[in-house]
Write a protein that binds this DNA or RNA. Structure first.
Lengths: 221, 221
DNA sequence: ACCTGAACACCGTTCAAGT
DNA sequence: ACCTGAACACCGTTCAAGT
């Protein structure tokens, strides 16, 4: 239960940063106006000077997530290679923050750093030949899907100590294996992989691949 | 503010159903133990007889969503045609309930109806030649992505009266058009489509297509 | 088996006031 | 400009008790 230095000067940035750190440690439910105030040895109402309401605090967290994206350079390779690289860059920035990743979906176009990412994806899709409408729909969907990749990863959510995690995984496996093999043969066959993702990197690679290949696929339709 | 008949007999099913209806009308934040109790003219604590805690109530909502999926018959057409049909069926069941759709992602394997859907998707992927591990990862991801398609649809969330919706859309468009065309040329070019989805059906079709094509793509890698 | 009453430990937020 | 104090209207949940 490490807390921020007792009397660091407050500001949007400092507060958003420590809110993000708190979410990473204890989950998004732990991020509370009152808790955050307490961690900074200040009254809850003090935060309302820096944020209009809690939603603005969450905006601040999302902004930091977007700011963590380091976009790869644009190359002269085919558009889908570049698209893959951008999505991977986005994924890498989000992966360390599974608890808060859901915040970004609705906020891409509301933060400057988010707009930069969106602009890049839109540009690549335009280069691939999609219309402005298609481009808009696909770009938003791609970014959201990368987020989904993270939040849908099999296995219990982090922010648990590893002992509790292991127990949860074993329980999950047991439940799935106990299902009727007549009704759910494939669930039973895939039980272990459904309960826990053994190789995260290959899971994420496959996911990004699926998306990029999907875009290629609908382009030639 | 229509409420359930004053003294219908309480039960898990009745409560979950009216919780879902409430969420559809006023959003998931409106679904509260106390509010639900009030709508049924009963004490909040009465609900704890039927549900261990609020999470179980949400499980009940998710269960109803899965139960609404009408799976298409298995055909002798190629696996990807069938996969497309299953995803569409899933999508159709979820679309009427955008506010609650986020509940299903973590609950597919916890409800009987959810398992039936998962089993079907797993089966089709196995038929396509994927390993049990790949099948597990992809199946979960596909279902989550369909959910994402709904929650990432451009435009303000429903549960607003149409006047407020229109105003929100106009505001969004204005903000995007006001951006620097040097920094964000493609965002500005796609502004209208980013603010509002003009054709929902084609948006959803393209999304499901992208996923199925994506699966085809990574199969031949 | 099914529901109530009272209480507890939390939330976000407003408003007036202090320095 | 930045923060406090007191108060309000909410939450989920426990526990003992009623029928």
């Amino acid at each position: 239960m490490k807390r921020a230095p007792a009397r660091e000067r407050l500001s949007r940035d400092v507060l958003a940063a420590s809110a993000l750190a708190l979410a990473d440690r204890e989950g998004l439910e732990a991020v509370t106006i009152r808790r955050l105030a307490q961690d900074h040895a200040v009254t809850p109402m003090a935060l309302y000077w820096h944020f209009k309401d809690k939603d603005e605090l969450l905006d601040g967290i999302a902004e930091r997530l977007f700011a963590g994206v380091v976009l790869p350079d644009i190359t002269d390779r085919p558009w889908d290679t570049d698209l893959h690289a951008v999505l991977e860059a986005f994924l890498s920035a989000m992966r360390p923050h599974p608890a808060t990743v859901g915040l970004v979906v609705t906020r891409v176009l509301q933060s400057d750093a988010g707009l930069v990412v969106a602009e890049r994806v839109l540009g690549l899709l335009r280069a691939a030949g999609f219309s402005t409408e298609q481009t808009a729909e696909i770009a938003g969907y791609l970014l959201s899907s990368v987020v989904t990749l993270i939040s849908a990863e099999p296995g219990p959510e982090p922010a648990l100590d590893s002992a509790a995690r292991d127990a949860a995984i074993r329980g999950k496996k047991a439940t799935l294996h106990a299902l009727s093999p007549e009704r759910f043969p494939n669930v039973v066959a895939s039980a272990d992989a459904l309960a826990y993702c053994a190789n995260e990197d290959s899971y994420f690679n496959r996911g990004v691949d699926l998306l990029v290949q999907g875009v290629r696929g609908i382009r030639s339709t």
